[in-house]
Structures are given as structure tokens and as C-alpha cells.
Nucleic acid binder design. Structure first.
Lengths: 351, 351
DNA sequence: GCACGGCGTGGAATCGATTACACGGCACCG
DNA sequence: CGGTGCCGTGTAATCGATTCCACGCCGTGC
């Protein structure tokens, strides 16, 4: 592969001049510039990003460590992150932690070794020493979706409290009184927050959230199934199951169906995180939708602000309830009943 | 951040010795090794991968350029690719082309600039000059899923011919005679091959595939909707729509539902590419399943073979038909009728 | 007519690693 | 006892860029 030296030789100038041309430095004669550009074209020269990074100590690369690529929520997040980063002149390297802390550490270490300019993390746990050290050592960092308390790191996330309250109102209006939740890992902020928001909302209606109605999941489908089976085995099973993420909702749907029961007739189902597929499931699933794309973009902007010396801001955006049919008819007033017939969110503009 | 010089100074040795310790070179005394290791620990030293790559001309990184991250098929592919690469000591940088050739080129160029050791591509089009040049210039490369004819590049893919034949047999047995297909872009191999396989299979049953029953899609949901609407507007609409990928199937489902029609009573639906969500849609969708994980792993092995000087092999694995309810009852003999009640493929082992 | 300033340019240092080569010391062999 | 060879180590070149500094040249102003 041609290097800057080859270009310099071909153009009859020094490497310094070539570098100046490539970096749009003003101090280059028109003549030299033309000869350099001709040589670049001729040789098909492309600057070696590795060498450049070594010298400038910048990689123009962001690391994104997410909890689970197979979760459509995170896939969409990753997509919007890459898009915004590209618009700002950065590339993104994605690390999939698969909800496993040790894998998360592996990726963080790998990304740090590659000297990425900044790190976007949706932590799988409460924070490993590695991550805490990196944050304290001054690695530009932004948390997205989930975060680790006690660190001076900006957080970009959705606030689901209001939407959870709307959901409970909706369920109450439909006559449901025994409501259960499949929680995420307590070590994650989203894991514990959603339970809390749910409990608080229930309290407003004078409803309790007994221990038996809190199932411990891990954000994966299998745990949703297991927990739901436990609920169904109770002497007095809940009338509604609220899953703290979309994969666990899927597992719950499986468990209900495996018993030959029907949603919502025998038991109602709702989920945190809305995804395009919920429109097409049987029945369409009532869910709390996060502004995922906007979260990804805001997170990138905050991180790049931090990298480029500006002051990053934490951002909290509201989530909203999307009513479909999995909790019973008729649809609540908050939402048009035809929601599940509207054009699928799977489509997107590609202009 | 501490560099190798700091470690050398702290350990009282030269940088060469530090490097030798870190690279397990035999010619180091036990004493020196111990002092170096102690210094490494003390300083929290981590080798700079950028500098190392510059010197050794290896990044231990693979580039993966896929057509669409939001397509669960490619998400799963990406996941298995990363997993196998990690097992072999490589990292993966994913580029999402979004079915747009210019975006594909952007990522290929970016990855080449970063001097990735090899490239895994599922081309969005027939091959840009950039990609052809890279292949001919000797960049280690492997095509996965889709490929570009006429290049000496190994291809790892699934063969769907037999499964398409099974599908047609299934449809024929259910009494369907007017079968239509939503094709992918003709510029992609999977786009044209699937139509051909479908036509050939129909011919075996003495059925024709008229032009009106071939809709041109682009592998995105919206095109599936549009094409399906066209089918439904025909004087004699087809009895079955076969979508060449899962997103277009989703669009088709939307279009059918928007007319107030029902699958499979009014029109049947089948898809190429099986995804976990097809179990949960209304109705569960009959699909052709690729061995996605195995494809990703095989592709990485081929690429790493090529990178490390061994001879890579092309791999073709069979796809298989998974019958569910979207083409009509009763389920075909080829598959257990309870397929859609089996544990969801969304779960996975995490051991 | 001379000094000064700015512009275009090249030489060389530098980033942080790897590695070829040289060198001193010690052991072993003849 | 001297030569050979290996072992452990350090010096320095190198990868491909960026950038500081110095230098030569030219134009301008006094």
C-alpha cells in the first residue's frame, strides 16, 4: 500500500508538503498542491489512519458497549448512535456485552487499548473496577439508557415514570387489580427503577405490590418465561404481567401460550420498550415506548461535546404509553384504538 | 497514560526488555521479567494497540459490512461473527450499509483506512469499483450471505433451493395455485437467486410465475407493503405471497391487514429468513430458516484462514423449511404441527 | 540599498510500540 | 587456557503520519 513517502516522491516534494496538502494547511503553493493531488490520485493513496492516530493521539472513534445486540431496542440505539457519530465525523465500534459483566469488561478494555476517543456505555452491572477506573481516569464517557450512580458521567436516558403511571391507569380502568412485574437485574438502574415506578403508580390507586408479584428476571426471554410460569402457579395468579423489557415480554407470551391460556382474556400483558414487532404479535402488545433514536443521537452529541472540550449535558426524555390489545378491549382513551393498524415503525426514511 | 518507556524506567530495564516480556519472548531473565511485571501492575500499563498495529502491520481486527442492522437476520449474523472472531483473537468493526451502496462504500473505505486485517461483506449491490479494487488488490475478503460474481473471493452462504422446493410442495398440497413473490434487488445474488429457485420449483408443479406475480422489493418493510398492495389490486390476486426476506414479509402482513383481510384465510404468506418473532406474529409465519449462526462462524474461520496464510474454503449450508400457520391448516407433514409452541429461539445459552 | 516579514518548503523530531543487531559475560569444549 | 557459542540485554532503526523549526527567497517599506 502506498505511503505518504511514495506520494512525496511521485510529486517531487517532501512528506511535509504532502501532509500539508492533505490537511488543508494554507501554506502550500498551488503548483505543489496540484502535483500532490495528482500523485495521490495516480497511486490511489489513502492515509494510514493507524499512523495518523498514533501521532495525533486521536482516533475519531467512539466505543459503544451495549448489553445485548439481539434486543431490538439496543439494535435501534446502536443504529442511531452510528448515524449521528458519522454525521459528526466519528466511527463507532460496538461491543456486545450480552448482559455478562465479564464480557462487558473485555470490550471496555479492548476499546481502551485501541485508544478510542470516548466511550458510550449502557452498563450491564453496577460497575466493575475497570469501568470505574476509566471514568475516574478521565476517559470521556457517557451513559445511555442505564447508568452507574455516583460517577460524574453524563447520563442520557428516558424517564418512564409518567408512562408507567399511564399504564397503571389504563390497567385499572380495564378492571385489573392484581398486577405483577417481571423485573430486570437489581444491579442495573433500569432494573430497579421500573419496579419502583410501578410500585409507586400502584400505590396511587391504593394497590399493593406483594413480593410474590415481583419476579426476578435478567432481561432475557428465558427469564420472562420462567417468572411467568411462577406467577401462573400461584394460588391467586396476577391478572396482569408487566415485563420490564421486550424480550422478557416475549418469554411471558410463550409461557402463557404453553399453558393453553390466552392474552388478554386469561391474563393481560404489557412491556417496557416498544419495538416494531409488537404491532404484529398475537395480540399486539401494549408497551412503553422510549424515544430510542433521539436517545442515541443525544448521547453521541454529549460524548462529542465532552471530547471536543465543550461541557456535556445529561439528557432525560419522556417515554410514552402505546396502547394495543394485550391488556384487554376497549383501548384506553389515551391512545387511538387503531394504533396497531398504523403504518409499521419498521419502515424508515432512507433519504 | 503510561507508555512502555515509563514501564522500562520503573523496572530499570530497556524498552526492548519490556516488549520481550509482554510478547512472551523466551530470552528474558526471571529477575527482569518479575520487575517488568511488577512495574506493569503498578502503573496499570496497557500496551497501545495503535502503536503496535503501526509497527506490526496487523490490527487483529475484522471488518464486517452488512446490509441492514435492523434486520434480525443480520443482527444474528453479526453476533455470531463477533463471537467466533473473539474466540480466535480478533475484534470486529461493524459497518451498516442500510442497503445503500454509497454507505457501503463509505464503510469499506473507512475500514480499509483503519487497516483491518480482513473484510467480511454481504454486498448491497453488484460491487462498486472500490470493492472490486480492494478484492483484486489482495485485501483478505470473504463474502457472506450475498456475493459478487466473478471475483476470486470465498463465499459462505446458505442454499435455499431445496427449502424453496419444500415450500412450494407445501403450498401446492394446501391447494394454492396462484403464487407470487416479492423479490429483492436484482443486483444482489440473494435477490435474484430466490426468484429463480421459486420459479424452478413452481415449474416442477406445472405452475407458471407470471410477471405480474413478481414484485420488485428492496428488502425493506415498506417495499413489501407496496408490492403486496399491488398484488391485492390485481384482477386476479395471488393466493400466496412469498417474501424474499423477513422485513418485506412484515410489510406484506401490514398491507394485508390494512385491507381488513386475514392471513391465511384470504391470502397466505411465507418468508425467506426465519426469525424468532415469526413464532409470535398473528399468525405465526411459515419461513425458510438459514443456519445463521453457523454461517457467521464459518465465514470468520474462512477469513482468518486467509489472513493467517491458510487456504480458505467457500461454504454452502442448506436452509430448511419451517412450517407454521401463515399458509393455512393443517400443517404440512414435513414439520411437527406444534412448531410454533416450542420454546422460543429468542433464548440462547449463555454458558 | 538594506532590513524585515511572510510565504513556501524541507529536515528532523515525535508518537509507542517491535525487532535486528551488537555486545558483554559466562559456560563448555578441545 | 583460549576459542566458540549462547544468553540476556541494550541501542537504534522502523512503521506512517504530523508538526516545529529553520532556511531561502521575494516583496515591501524606509
Amino acid at each position: 500500500m502506498a505511503s505518504i513517502k511514495d506520494v512525496a516522491a511521485a510529486a517531487g516534494v517532501s512528506v511535509a508538503t504532502v501532509s500539508r496538502v492533505l490537511n488543508a494547511h494554507p501554506s502550500v503553493s498551488a503548483d505543489a498542491r496540484a502535483r500532490v493531488l495528482a500523485a495521490v490520485e495516480e497511486l490511489g493513496y489513502r492515509p494510514n489512519a493507524v499512523a495518523r492516530s498514533l501521532r495525533t493521539d486521536q482516533t475519531h472513534t467512539l466505543g459503544l458497549v451495549i448489553s445485548d445486540v439481539l434486543n431490538p431496542y439496543f439494535t435501534e440505539l446502536a443504529r442511531s448512535v452510528e448515524e449521528e457519530a458519522r454525521a459528526l465525523g466519528y466511527s463507532v465500534i460496538i461491543g456486545n456485552a450480552d448482559e455478562r459483566p465479564e464480557l462487558q469488561d473485555h470490550h471496555v478494555r479492548n476499546l481502551l487499548d485501541r485508544r478510542i476517543d470516548g466511550l458510550l456505555v449502557s452498563p450491564t452491572d453496577g460497575g466493575s473496577p475497570l469501568m470505574l477506573d476509566a471514568a475516574r481516569a478521565g476517559t470521556p464517557m457517557v451513559f445511555v439508557d442505564r447508568w452507574i450512580p455516583g460517577l460524574d458521567v453524563p447520563v442520557v436516558r428516558a424517564d418512564g415514570r409518567a408512562a408507567v403511571r399511564d399504564l397503571v391507569a389504563h390497567l385499572y380502568a380495564l378492571g385489573h387489580r392484581r398486577l405483577a412485574i417481571i423485573a430486570g437485574p437489581a444491579a442495573t438502574t433500569t432494573g430497579s427503577e421500573r419496579v419502583e415506578a410501578f410500585r409507586d403508580a400502584l400505590a396511587e390507586y391504593g394497590l399493593a405490590l406483594p413480593g410474590a408479584y415481583i419476579g426476578q428476571g435478567d432481561f432475557q426471554a428465558e427469564s420472562g418465561r420462567r417468572v411467568t410460569e411462577g406467577f401462573l402457579d400461584l394460588p391467586e395468579p396476577p391478572q396482569v404481567v408487566f415485563a420490564a423489557d421486550n424480550l422478557m415480554a416475549l418469554g411471558a407470551l410463550d409461557a402463557v401460550r404453553a399453558r393453553g391460556l390466552r392474552v388478554p382474556d386469561d391474563i393481560a400483558l404489557a412491556a417496557f420498550d416498544d419495538i416494531p414487532w409488537f404491532v404484529h404479535t398475537d395480540p399486539p402488545v401494549t408497551a412503553i415506548a422510549q424515544p430510542t433514536g433521539e436517545l442515541g443521537r443525544a448521547a453521541v452529541r454529549a460524548l462529542v461535546d465532552r471530547i471536543e472540550g465543550r461541557t456535556p449535558r445529561s439528557v432525560t426524555l419522556p417515554a410514552r404509553l402505546v396502547v394495543r390489545r394485550s391488556c384487554g378491549e376497549p383501548a384506553a382513551p389515551a391512545q387511538a384504538p387503531s394504533a396497531d393498524l398504523s403504518p409499521s415503525p419498521v419502515q424508515r426514511s432512507t433519504s
